[in-house]
Amino acid sequence: MAVAAAQEQAVPRAEPIVPVRGLVPVGAIIAALVGAIGADWTWGLDFFHVVGGGMWTALDLFMGFIIGPIMRSLPPPARVELTKKLMPKMLLIMPTLVTMTLGAGFQLARHNGMLNTAYNLHGWVVASMIVVAIMAIVALALLQPANIAVLFELRRPQPRPEVVQGLMRRFIYAAAVTGAMQVATLVIMTRLAS
């Protein structure tokens, strides 16, 4: 029994893919968002949309154009270490920001009559939906799967650097594409708010 216990201690337990403690604030944010939608709370919807949208845009641009080039300049072991620390957090932060922004944004547009075809800038609203759709396709088909695959690879006793680097390259390029699309979103949103 003592041998079994010693063996158990010698084998490091794999970290969970998702940082479990982080689920608590995520759950609280989603619950508050549902509450704001259900109560038609305009200030709350504004808050979620502006804060979520601002952070989503900043994070996409930061990942694509700041972290990406930095990561490319690091030696492979340093890239793996940075990836290990960064990616579990991104797995929770990004979907939460996207849900906040889009959920609150759609309700705000409905409240303000912007979804109505009679609205004089309705074409801009539809254009924003198209931009969001492109970002969603890139995020859900490329960015998020790469994020999860990297985390699984890093749980291996010997992560393969070429796999980690390939997936991280895909993640950073996808973030750069969504970052560039965010600039289009900024143009549309400022036009709608003017």
Partner: peptide, 21 residues
């Protein structure tokens, strides 16, 4: 998969673009 999600997005945008009609 990207094609399929793109078609879904096109369908939702098409329906949403007509709201409230």
């Amino acid at each position: 998969g990207m094609l399929s999600i793109g078609l879904v997005a096109a369908g939702v945008i098409y329906l949403a673009a007509y709201l409230p009609k």
